[in-house]
Simulated assay, not measured.
Amino acid sequence: MPGKFLRLLAIAMLLFMSASAQKKAPSFSIIPLGVKGGIDESNLSAYMVSAAGSNNYICMDAGTLHSGIEKAVSKHTFKVPAETILKQYIKGYFISHAHLDHVSGLIINSPEDSTKSIYGLPSCLETIKTHYFTWASWANFADDGEKPALKKYSYKPMEPGKPVTVDGTGLSVQVFPLSHSNLVGAAYLVKNNDAYVLYLGDTGPDEVEKSTKLRELWQAIVPLISKGELKGIMIEVSYPNEQPDKSLFGHLTPNWLMKEMQVLQSLTGEGKLKGFNLVVTHVKPPQKNIEKLKQQLKQQNTLGLNLIFPQQGKRIEL
């Protein structure tokens, strides 16, 4: 009898360990190609996102491509040439808004890129079409706009509430509008089976922007947090707390981020954000400001969030 009991106990422990391992298995692989917001043109907002274990990525913003890919190769994140990553691994671009620090890599690399789609809100795509992919400023590599259209890229306007599926990736993406000073920016909710990750482009706090867009976004993701399906939020914090509200220009500070996280917790319930993954993006140079910003975030992290500071070229798994 004792032997039988021990065998049953061992089997139970193995089943428990197997279930725990499956529970902790990552759902997403994120490769930061650029993590800063101005002025370092070699390291501007761009994040490759795929289902874990897949080399079929979408790119959230595209401020830096080539330099970031080269950095990822040098860090052995990828073991293939940079050209393969640009042309074969990246299946499409999701642009949050058309400021240069979010699209310049896409524009500059377009002659060497492969055929794929550019997704975004109609206002964002219109700016790319009329200001960047024109024959006066560059060349029209897209399928609409000034003639001749070279048709390498196809514009895919998105509507809030209507997810799109990206062929060959297993991912679907839903867009939410954000308030970014004088622009309508975008957040993208990426779905892989029953797991999600949320990427926000540039955004100001609701109170400063006189907006409700962040609160509406938080309300939309509450059910995903409650069920443990949202694996993380990628959100900008551009300036340290010393930046006055009148000079935020549609961005966040540690103070404002934590206020917004308090709003999110008020919707999810006490303690629900403890250990939740928060990837901090779009930090603005100089380096002393970045270090101050990180220190302030850590000091004000009373909710127990798992703060992640991405490094260019280094893989993040969520």
Rank of each mutant, 00 (worst) to 15 (best):
E126G: 06
P2E: 04
P157K: 03
L264E: 01
P286Y: 10
F309V: 07
N192Q: 13
S104E: 09
L252A: 01
D113I: 14
T169H: 14
I316T: 03
E83H: 14
K210T: 00
L248W: 04
Q174N: 09
K156W: 05
E70K: 05
V35M: 04
S29Q: 11
P244Q: 13
K91E: 03
G53N: 09
L171A: 09
Q296N: 08
T134E: 12
P111R: 13
F141Y: 15
I30N: 03
Y93S: 07
H251F: 03
N109R: 13
L230M: 02
T64E: 01
A10Y: 00
I225K: 02
K292T: 14
L8V: 04
L200Q: 02
L273Q: 10
N182M: 07
V279T: 08
L6Y: 11
Q22C: 10
G120H: 04
S104P: 01
G120Y: 01
N55S: 13
G185V: 03
G3Y: 03
V222Y: 02
L230F: 01
G170I: 09
L178Q: 03
A136G: 07
L252E: 00
K152I: 10
L303G: 00
D194G: 03
L293D: 00
Q265C: 05
D144L: 12
W138G: 07
R215I: 00
K288G: 01
M234V: 12
I39D: 14
A82H: 08
S20A: 15
E159Q: 09
V263L: 12
D143I: 08
S154A: 13
V49E: 07
L252R: 00
N56T: 06
P205Y: 02
S18I: 10
N182G: 02
A142E: 00
V190M: 09
D194R: 01
S181A: 14
K162D: 03
T302F: 15
I290N: 05
K162R: 13
P285G: 15
A19N: 12
E207F: 08
G120V: 04
M60I: 11
L273N: 10
C124M: 01
N241F: 04
Y47D: 00
T302R: 11
C59D: 00
